[in-house]
Nucleic acid binder design. Sequence first.
DNA 1: GGCTGCGAGACTCG
DNA 2: TCACGAGTCTCGCAGCC
Length: 612
Amino acid sequence: MKKSVLKTYNEVKEWFAFTFPIITFDTETTSLDYLTLELVGISFCAPPFVCYIDLWENEEASQILDYLRELFAKEFDVLIGQNISYDLKVIDKYGIFPKEDAVFFDTQVAAHLLNENEPKKLSYLSDRYLDKPMKEWSDVKELGYHSQEFYEYGMNDAKVANDLFRMFYPLLRMNNLLDIFTKVEMPFQRVKVELETHGILIDRDKLPELQEQLLSILNQLQVDMCESAGIEYYYQQNMFDNDTLITDINFGSSPQLVDLIQNKLGLKITVFTDKENPSVGKESLKKLKGQHPFIDLLSTYKKATKLNNSFVATFPDFIDKDDRIRCNWHNTNAVTGRIIATKPNLLQLPRDKAQLDIPFDFRSCFIAPTGKLIVSADYAGQELCWLGEVTGDKNLIRAIKDRKDLHLTTANTIFKLGIPECYLYTDHPDYPDIKKKYKDKRYIGKNGVNFPLIYGKTSYGISQEFNISREEAEGWIGGFFSLYPDVKKRIAECHHQIDETAQVVDWFGRIRRLDVSDLNGAYRQGFNFLIQSPSASQIKLAATAVHNLFQENPEWDAKFILVIYDELVYEVNEDFAEESANLVVQTMENVVKTRVPFTVEFGIGKSYGESK
DNA sequence: GGCTGCGAGACTCG
DNA sequence: TCACGAGTCTCGCAGCC
């Protein structure tokens, strides 16, 4: 490989004297934080050439960047890289954009498709696939941005990514993974870049308001808990001139709570943790409910501390100078292909507005800037629709097509409610009343049968959770399978496939390799994968298609702010909110050609909370 | 005595 | 033996200086 370190505009121009339609590249930056990071250098690889362009404290940097801007806009048809969305994000910050029809090849995503159970770090992949150990970033960063070792490191990153590309391309083809890679995963990278660069706007003033509410509730709860359990307490003044409640017990400590509940209150805990210790979690407290006033207070206290500690108190640390949160989105963490968010995890924003019987609405802290609105569009019953598509069950497909309420239908069968068939259709005028009347039974149809079956729950598990006999639980499951017999057949087929090959392949071709040493576990994971994985691919395809729609309609000024499981959330010029939403719904509904129709619902609001 | 790393347990979301 | 896929927080213990 012919290596060059380039520092001047002329050297760079000379290196690119040949045209390179296919190029591997990698950026070096001062930090990972989008708003503050600075570009240190870029390496390019096009065998047999590899170069490192040193941009740090370089007088010709802006001239070189102008030239690179032109190359990206006109020359490069195929861009290869490890975790390429990061490098795209970096150059995006410098106004460098790939061609609209440029094709990406991310070696990290390829590695994930080829084996979802292994690590995906470049150094690991180099060792594993190329048998070449690599230097770690920590080994070179202290030598300085102008050291030869640093240049070598940068060039090696690009070279290794290129070697991996040449190894992975045929492997993807051999495993029939090229389709999902090129049609689902790579186009989605543009959405990922948008999510990470644009971020989501926060109403900074709203968080202290919510915190004040929560803290006053927490204080009162602590007093009530102490008094109901006969615990001594007193107040101590802290440095902020507030009174802090002091007790002998830490209500956040499980062992201390176990001691209090069993030994002081004399209650018997019947739920145990994995390690067979008495549990003080939600399930356990549910069983103790009504036996002592302390239990109810504790349940509420736990909810409130969680909301405060995990969300209200910590989110301000994540807000950038421009009042936006830019979390990290990950494409290669979840074995089912779902995308994941971290720091903070915007996928687990508290949902239930009435959780604490107070006006607590965390999602309303996420707002649209002036002149814009937030649109949220989500698939209705996405996983049950995929259950129909994947199993091909005629009754289930018909029920979905006819817009039947699937949870109420299940409840009607297992509880023999005798609701006439016609009232189960959501477009029947009396349906809302029926739904209301059988609310509790419908809840069991949904959370006791329909969803648990997708997860592979057994009659034992259902009997435990709903406090019923095992026979009764078997009756529920039997009732579901009598409605949808082909679902049972497809589950058996899935198990057979796992017996034969120790892996399953989903609707889009994504593979899950299973650990069959726990065969029952593998069966559950395998069938769930057949539902969860296509759902993940569908939302990626939908996001990509909607992103294209945004490009075609620049007057909308629309940008993605969240992509959550079955839901797309974007901000848009308020004059086009309704118009864009209607087109987005159409696009999402038709992005995959299936036997089962998918229905999308949307909401519009000034905040994310309002748009739901 | 104080700091750090890590597993367990509990909670958030779909 | 018994529910899939994730991330984050706190506690409490072990190990270290």
